[in-house]
Design a protein around this nucleic acid. Structure first.
Lengths: 228, 228
DNA sequence: CGATAAAACTAGACCGAGTACAACAATAGG
DNA sequence: CCTATTGTTGTACTCGGTCTAGTTTTATCG
């Protein structure tokens, strides 16, 4: 007996090909230049289904099978679009970290390093509109057990830490490894704290950027003397 | 067909009861007061086997089955002693966090809050002798992909953050929620950074406590003005 | 001593996330 | 039509973790 597929026994098999459910209009838009089958609207369908289910029954109690079933997609398809279940929650945060990376590169090199980092973080935060909020934030209020959320999210923030560390390292004199690393991860801690407070404010929250700024300012002040 | 048990088909079954292998002497020491079967040396056997296997083939490639097989213990027994595989790596860190909690309670209440936290963290770090080093640290050098390690460890540090936050919260005037949270998690970031640098030093590393102190000092300096 | 209760341990089924791979379907271009 | 390419699916598998029922060892009480 196969291991998975607790639901949807072989009978009543879904018609292969794209299902008739949901909001997927005929995906045959433009020839798109390159060969191969064109993607159905699977990605959006998955995201929508996940958003609904997370609100209905929380992240922890929603399985990937639930999501794909509601989206009218195969379980295998899920992993074509996402590497892990937690990507549904934190994918937006990943994108935000990417934007921090860009902002860091865009910083002028004649200002003190900590000011540059501060500017980059705040700039990135300014692009977080209240329109597109990471799913993780909406879950924050809902979840009784935040540990799973927290754990799945921390690794994303650690990427931010590595990013900042590389930047600071490039602008510090050697022999400052400890200070560079400490500053980077202290900043990330402060950012995460601000994000947590922001998420906890529920709907109609304040803009994120000033919060971030207030949270990281003391860290910047503390470490600034350690850098040129 | 059963799902698991890829190895050890029903043939060649290990003799039930305590195996003759390893270092487990007859555990019948003292009557120990209370009823019930006395524990075999399973816990130590598991830890030893895990330590060996992690060094031989890394954490990621070692399954719980491997560990329990070498330890001569059933898989079920593993979960009698540990909640998760990652506890083998981070259990010592958990204990360390506990000791921070104690140190926080032992701090005099007439010194500034940030000084108290700093003292507690450094005191706890002083008890980390080079004798008993968390397995995670020894793995740090070995692992090609540190992400799994990192992820499994971050949640432990987040507990430290919550601890500090509660303490700071009890000593701050209300309305300082953001500052309290930011300070807590910035501290944790700095501590984690110091621990990482320490771990990366390989064998014969410097004492941890001064490293921690140097890492968190700027954070304390930065946030100190925000608290009474 | 025997009965009982508690504790350590085991066996085995089960679940869900994640991986791997071989198909199959749709589409562009020759 | 043929072929290469890309999206999608079915299916088997691994592993961490949970759960439950049952077995063995032990101390205590009658």
């Amino acid at each position: 007996m196969p291991t998975n597929e607790p639901l949807t026994p072989p009978s009543s098999g879904r018609p292969s090909g794209r299902p008739s459910g949901q909001s997927s209009g005929q995906p045959s838009g433009r020839p798109s230049g390159r060969p191969g089958r064109r993607p159905a609207s699977s990605r959006a369908a998955i995201e929508d289904a996940a958003g609904e289910l997370f609100l209905e029954q929380s992240y922890a109690r929603t399985t990937i099978e639930h999501i794909t079933t509601r989206a009218g997609v195969s379980r295998a398809s899920f992993f074509n679009y996402f590497d892990a279940k937690s990507d549904l929650l934190w994918g937006d945060v990943d994108a935000l970290v990417d934007s921090v990376e860009q902002q860091l590169r865009a910083q002028p090199s004649n200002i003190p390093p900590m000011d540059a980092v501060r500017g980059a973080l705040v700039s990135a935060a300014e692009h977080v509109g209240s329109d597109r909020i990471p799913l993780a934030v909406t879950q924050w209020e809902l979840m009784g057990a935040r540990d799973e959320l927290l754990t799945s999210g921390l690794s994303r923030f650690s990427r931010l830490g590595s990013l900042v560390r590389v930047y600071l390292d490039s602008r510090a004199k050697s022999g400052e490894q400890l200070a560079v690393t400490a500053a980077s991860f202290a900043l990330v801690g402060a950012v995460a704290a601000a994000a947590g407070v922001w998420a906890a404010q529920g709907t109609a929250r304040d803009p994120l950027a000033p919060l971030i700024d207030r949270a990281i300012a003391p860290v910047c002040d503390g470490f600034a003397p350690r850098f040129s």
